[in-house]
Write a protein that binds this DNA or RNA. Structure first.
Length: 471
DNA sequence: CTATGGCACGGATT
DNA sequence: AATCCGTGCCATAG
């Protein structure tokens, strides 16, 4: 279920066209967004429309192709589909507690306020919009408010309840706990979002945050225990729970994990370029692919500019036609890019549906070259299309698109399972022969390599770990 | 002596 | 042409 803008590729391509399509293809959607913005501001022949009006009946058009109302065909040099804000990505709340993906690669960094704003768009009343913008813009780098709510109300000429309402919405958006007055409140908000009472530690954790936050920061667990009259062990457990599941600095958060920032990690937000989801209304329904853009609206060559061309005087003429040509090229290139991405994703979901739905084990090894052959483009095109992109899977995980082409993923997954279920530590040799019986023939040395990739300790050390766990 | 990690080589992939 | 990947050989730690 994705909109296909086929047939574009039948048009003859100039070398300039090809070159630019390539350079656009490597970009992640976020980077493309920036690119479009600069192009728009430097080229008067381009325009971005909020919505597209059918030239026939003057009703807004929502998708490519003929007008649904008067079925008039809109001519071809026209716009590219950009998704409406409604389609923008919203992470599910659940993910916060799930085990964290170790496999994330740096994806497109995005301005935090833009990201949050997009989530808010649907829930926000029109009159609250500028309040939200103001608040998000004035957050400091840790994601905290820089001025108290009454001040914000004054600055935005709104009421205090209004401001509080917006702040409450921002609390709940991802990353959870933004726009608080400090780490303590952030942690409390995150605690609320985790779901009531499910966790036995929640209540105690809440109490710790409320009543002995400063002691908590200094790790004076014994002192806290004394004050609150609880066992030091319980305090430590609750502290560990907070540490593991909450993040006092929401603006430094990561996708899918409440982990604390660690040195060496890059503080990057992961916004997927593509989302694969299953239609929730239909059981076992088809997989849907959405390709995101951080711009909504329609990009096209400004028809007025085109009409004005003949009126240009001598010295303008050259410049204008250059603009026009560039604009035309740009639009076509982006169309081309979208087209390639759509066809690529279409092929991936149909061939790897087991992997998408069931997990890493079911990834069928494939190479970019194969895909290129099936689509009928050059291999380097697929390479570029795959590079720097991330995909949100139906289960909410965000993975690099390149993972689809990881030849050893399924084997590594199998090894992981073998190790998890082993009763006593198995050596690499044994694991290798086990895999052999399953028809997977790899060398012992390779098992060792995969173990390393997965962060699994060697057999000897695994033994030690189990002993200490038992004790 | 056994299990593992380092290095480097050759073939495949990009 | 550059890079990645699986593997064999060898040194080393236990």
């Amino acid at each position: 279920m994705f909109r296909q803008t086929q047939d574009q590729s039948l048009r003859p391509l100039t070398t300039a066209h090809l070159a630019q399509t390539m350079s656009l293809l490597v970009l992640s959607n976020q980077e493309l967004h920036d690119r479009v913005i600069t192009e728009l501001s430097s080229n008067p022949a381009l325009e971005l429309l909020d919505e597209r009006i059918c030239p026939g009946c003057h009703k807004p058009l929502s998708s490519a192709g003929p007008c649904p109302v008067c079925s008039r065909q809109v001519e071809g040099e026209e716009p590219i589909v950009f998704l409406s804000p409604r389609d923008s990505y919203r992470p599910s709340r659940k993910r916060t507690l799930e085990d964290q993906p170790l496999d994330q690669e740096p994806a497109a960094p995005e301005d935090l306020s833009v990201y949050v704003m997009r989530q808010l768009a649907a829930d926000l009343k029109p009159e609250d919009r500028n309040v939200a913008v103001y608040i998000l813009a004035s957050l400091d780098e840790d994601g905290f408010l820089t001025s108290p709510p009454p001040y914000i109300a004054q600055a935005t000429r709104s009421s205090l309840p209004q401001v509080m309402r917006v702040i409450d919405l921002i609390y709940k958006a991802d990353p959870v706990g933004l726009a608080t007055d400090g780490p303590r409140q952030t942690l409390l908000v995150q605690l609320d979002q985790l779901g009531e009472g499910e966790e036995p530690h929640c209540e105690l954790a809440r109490q710790l945050l409320r009543e002995s936050f400063s002691e908590l920061g200094r790790r004076e667990y014994d002192k806290i225990a004394l004050i609150l009259g609880i066992s030091p062990a319980a305090v430590k457990e609750a502290a560990a729970f907070i540490h593991d599941n909450l993040n006092p600095y929401p603006a430094r958060a990561y996708w899918g994990s409440g982990r604390q920032p660690q040195p060496g990690d890059s503080n990057v937000y992961h916004t997927p370029d593509v989302m694969i989801s299953r239609n929730p209304s239909v059981n076992d329904g088809p997989l849907m692919v959405e390709i995101f853009s951080s711009i909504s609206g329609w990009l096209r060559v400004n028809p007025l500019f085109r009409q004005a061309m003949p009126e240009a005087n001598e010295e303008q003429s050259d410049e204008w036609s250059e603009h026009l040509e560039k604009a035309n090229l740009f639009v076509k290139c982006i169309q081309q890019r979208n087209n390639t991405m759509q066809r690529l994703m279409g092929l991936l979901v149909s061939q790897q549906s087991d992997f998408i739905l069931e997990g890493a084990r079911f990834l069928i090894p494939m190479t970019r070259a194969q895909i290129a052959g099936e689509i009928g483009v050059h291999e380097s095109t697929i390479s570029r299309a795959v590079a720097n992109k991330s995909v949100a899977m139906p289960n909410g995980r965000i993975i690099p698109l390149a993972k689809f082409f990881d030849r050893s993923l399924s084997v590594r997954d199998r090894i992981k399972e073998i190790v998890e279920n082993e009763s006593k530590p198995l050596t690499d040799d044994v694991i290798a022969s086990l895999l052999q019986e399953e028809g997977i023939k790899i060398a012992r040395r390779t098992v060792a390599k995969y173990r390393a990739v997965e962060g699994i300790l060697p057999a000897r050390l695994r033994g030690a770990r189990k002993l200490s766990q038992a004790a």
